[in-house]
């Protein structure tokens, strides 16, 4: 049984996403959204899918991986090639979901191939190996013929729209939030909190690590398919380690293991560089400074102490003297 608190928390997350969609949809219908803003909606959705799925490995499983863009690229190429070859055979309503499913499955298969040997590595070693895999995938795609090579894959139908992306986000949230709250999810978080204790309790470490890794890879692949169907050219160069790092930044800024946090951070980080466009050349500089300051304020003991002091929760706790110690994170 799920506790009342988690049910409420899940409802807030769904509600937030649905409300955001309804507002955007209403604004779009009344013509209040510019072309430029509309073009950002799909990328925001893609980043939400990427961030939430990466949060499953980084936040819930506690393993740092830097190869998320690699899975995304595998999924993108699989889905796009499928769409190109079946463009005349299947109607959109069948083709696009099938492309996404195929992209996700191919990425998940790569997740298994990569995950089985590397998941016994820990910490920074795992980070560098996943980064290495991402870079290998990129180099290989550039050197293959059927992927269009370095000049990119052309001719993918541009099927991605923001309502479709929204539906995919809802499905992903349903899967991942239920997974996290399930027996499997508790096993995954137990591995994060204490691997040895979890193993001693009879949790199959390899299986659950792989499960989290593969589910994350699946959704990265789906996001890749959406990405591929959003632009006219798909180039492997896009999916370099910088992209993986950017997704990681979203997860960390949003808060490890917080799905709602990932959604918000993905949205903010996608919009922020665009919103800072008026700064022209100084845009990336300001972005970097904001990133550093946010990290310091968020994680430095000096500032977290100050934040606790300022938070109304602390005062309520002091006044009512009910709450002993910190709230469980």
């Amino acid at each position: 049984m799920q506790s009342k608190k988690t049910v409420v928390s899940k409802m807030i997350t769904y509600g937030m996403v649905i409300l955001a969609f309804v507002i955007v949809f209403a604004l779009d219908q009344s013509g209040l959204i510019s072309r430029h803003m509309r073009s950002m909606l799909v990328p925001i959705g893609i980043n939400i899918i990427l961030a939430v799925s990466l949060n499953l490995t980084v936040g819930f499983l506690g393993e740092l991986t830097l190869g998320h863009a690699g899975f995304m690229s595998v999924g993108a190429y699989a889905g796009c090639l499928f769409s190109i070859y079946t463009a005349d055979l299947l109607p959109l309503a069948a083709r696009f979901p099938l492309a996404m499913l195929l992209g996700g499955i191919v990425a998940a298969v790569f997740g298994i191939i990569i995950g089985v040997p590397v998941l016994r590595l820990k910490g920074d070693y795992l980070a560098i190996v996943t980064l290495a895999f991402g870079e290998i995938i990129r180099s290989v795609i550039i050197n293959l013929n059927f992927t269009g090579g370095a000049s990119g894959l052309k001719g993918t139908p541009q099927d991605s729209t923001y309502p479709i992306t929204f539906v995919v986000i809802l499905i992903m949230l349903f899967v991942i939030m239920n997974l996290v709250e399930s027996k499997h999810g508790r096993a995954i978080t137990a591995i994060r909190d204490n691997r040895i204790a979890a193993e001693a309790c009879g949790i199959n470490i390899t299986y659950y690590k792989l499960l989290a890794f593969v589910v994350a890879a699946f959704f990265a692949g789906v996001a890749g398919v959406l990405f591929g169907h959003n632009y006219s050219i798909l180039t492997a160069g896009t999916f370099d380690y910088n992209m993986s790092i950017e997704i990681l930044v979203m997860v960390v800024l949003g808060g490890m293991g917080s799905i709602r946090g990932s959604i918000i951070a993905a949205t903010v980080i996608t919009i922020l560089p665009e919103a800072l466009r008026f700064l022209e050349d100084y845009r990336m500089l300001i972005y970097a400074v904001v990133l550093i300051i946010v990290m310091i304020v968020n994680a430095s003991p000096r500032f977290t102490g100050m934040r606790d002091f300022l938070s109304p929760k602390t005062w309520i706790a002091i006044l009512t003297k009910k709450n002993n110690g910190k709230e469980a994170a």
């Binding site: 400074v289 990133l291 550093i292 990290m295």
Partner: peptide
């Protein structure tokens, strides 16, 4: 360590 890693990435961007 992850917070420090992200900060280092921020410094790199900077």
């Amino acid at each position: 360590p992850l917070a420090v890693l992200i900060t280092a990435i921020g410094v790199s961007y900077f």
